[in-house]
Design a binder for these strands. Structure first.
Lengths: 343, 343
DNA sequence: GCTGTATGGGAGAGCGCTCTCCCATGAATT
DNA sequence: AATTCATGGGAGAGCGCTCTCCCATACAGC
């Protein structure tokens, strides 16, 4: 069963009675080969159990047929934090989407965590060695170094979320502003009039835009000012922000939290103060992550089509690997309002 | 900055004024080289920005210096489920541990999901092509096919958790029985006398052993029979099992749930019935995952040292890649009781 | 008939490394 | 002084592919 010296093209050629070149042509469908010879070759491949040697092929094609998924962002150097990031449902959906989109090409992505500048260097070296042809970057915080470093070693990258500053990187993003607007629209449509907001970290463009859209939406409904507290996307920060807002705006009846986790924290804080959700206060989250689906009450939220976005990232990257000449491009996806119990 | 034609060994040799072989020796520290020449070579590497070409090296060494992490288990074909598995905190900790242990070697693991037999084939082909030297297998359910398939193509694998049937695979596991025993011991030590259990799926060896240990522990404390309900490791199944047990054994005062998620579900069910935790009923979970830490009350649990286990998996795999001749080995880790509020 | 042109196959160079030989040198042994 | 031997360097083969040439054949057009 296990042929120790793995068969080579030469072996297949001998069995098929043709030259190495012909076998290569059949396998790569790179030029016309007479149908009957194709058949013979294919049978020989079958018989020998031949599988092309990736290293040999890569050596001449200068392609590894591999891609890397780089997870960057907050300092993950304490393992707890890193574990939590990998654990983030948001990330899980994205990664699953990436793996699924890569599977038909027989590619399995290499996973890397970029926690500090030393990691950036190691990752760049990894790409330069030719271990992977391109990178998919996922980072919660705008990260400018890697795309440029990778571009320097001739490796294209596609980023999830728009970078803070334009660079040599394509990206896929959500229409965050539109998402915020949808949240306001929905809350207004169910008769709420005293909105507040729990924003994400405002140095993140996405957090800014969600908030801007939300405010814009309320402005249209005659509510020019929306009290807001800044959170950090986490459960605890949502809880804290909610407490603060309850102090500042006791009469509030609607909350938009820029992440489901913060929405969950907010709902907890509301419960502690005896406010019922959604009767007293309606809550809308963002992401449509597991907490939104599973917690009680289920959280009405703005869904990011992460699987589709992941597939698009893959498509963009493979395209740029194929032909690096065109400029980086970006694709923006529309969010979807998902109704549950909280609003 | 970006040298389009990446420098080769030849280039470095020319700059250093030595032969290709000498440069190779310095880089790989493979034979004695005069210190002053080493210095010259190292400077030449610096100057040229040389990085060895992985493909060329792999072609001759027949090593890819890559490893794969294969996530197998329940049918993940619906993306929801798969996303959830990647999302599992258990998995996140393990994966983080693996990545961390691999990092010093400059290896970034390729992530693969094995959802069905076709995937097994694709994964095996991937390894046979020489894309990776060995596999780390993580599956919640005993999976027999892959280790043998990989062994057939000459790739060692290390599994997380003991396989149902012995095979050509090393593994790392927890002393589950001991964990169950610890849970019983602790519950008995705080004066509980009416224990019940929510087990994991009993076709899983680990679930069986946790339960066996738990029963053994109680037997020592004069409680030969422990009512049990089977769950599926999930939140919902824990809630359901708890309800069933409350019906069957209304006087219960202690619960051991074979996963933190089930413990969380159980606590929820207990709350619905007006039972206070831990005053009326003490609850012990298993894993020490995020839910155990973050939920209220915090769940007293049996911790798996997943990071250490992941590091050991990596160690075992690299060792077997280095020298495949010795038989597969296994390493068993001891669990740790983590005290929180629930018991 | 001869040339022109597809069509399909083979020969062989060469991708960038590693590693086995082999050789030059100088120190140690006799 | 002659021989052995350890030490450190170079030459060059070859890993398994791809791909550019080149050539043989078949068939069309004149």
């Amino acid at each position: 069963m296990s042929a120790d010296p793995s068969p080579t093209l030469e072996d297949v050629a001998r069995v098929a009675g043709v030259s190495r070149a012909t076998v290569s042509r059949v396998i790569n469908q790179t030029r016309n080969v007479a149908p009957e010879i194709q058949e013979v070759v294919r049978r020989a491949v079958e018989v020998t159990g031949y599988v092309p040697n990736r290293a040999a092929r890569s050596l001449v094609t200068r392609r590894s047929e591999a891609v890397g998924v780089v997870v960057a962002g907050t300092d993950l150097s304490d393992s707890l934090n890193a574990g939590q990031f990998l654990t983030d449902p948001f990330f899980g959906r994205l990664l699953t989407g990436i793996i699924g989109a890569l599977k038909p090409r027989g590619i399995f992505p290499a996973l890397m965590l970029a926690e500090n500048p030393a990691d950036d260097l190691a990752i760049t070296a990894y790409f330069k060695q030719g271990n992977a042809d391109g990178a998919l970057l996922i980072s919660t915080y705008p990260d400018e170094r890697l795309p440029a470093m990778l571009a320097d070693v001739g490796r294209p990258s596609v980023r999830f979320a728009r970078p803070a500053h334009p660079g040599p990187v394509s990206y896929v993003d959500l229409a965050h502003r539109e998402g915020g607007r949808m949240a306001a629209e929905h809350l207004a449509s169910i008769g709420r009039r005293r909105p507040v907001a729990i924003t994400g970290p405002l140095e993140i463009p996405a957090a800014q835009e969600r908030q801007a859209g939300y405010e814009e939406g309320w402005a249209r409904h005659g509510c020019p000012f929306v009290p807001a507290a800044e959170g950090g996307f986490t459960y605890d920060s949502g809880e804290r922000a909610m407490k603060e807002l309850l102090d500042r705006v006791p009469e509030l009846d609607a909350v938009f939290a820029a992440s489901d986790l913060m929405a969950q924290g907010a709902i907890h804080a509301l419960g502690d103060q005896g406010r019922r959700v959604p009767d007293d206060v309606a809550v809308v989250g963002f992401d449509d992550s597991a907490p939104a689906r599973l917690s009680r009450p289920g959280i009405t939220t703005i869904r990011q089509p992460l699987e589709a976005m992941a597939a698009e990232m893959v498509r963009l990257l493979l395209q740029r690997i194929e032909d690096p000449s065109p400029d980086p491009t970006s694709v923006i996806f529309d969010p979807v309002l998902v109704l549950r119990e909280s609003a």
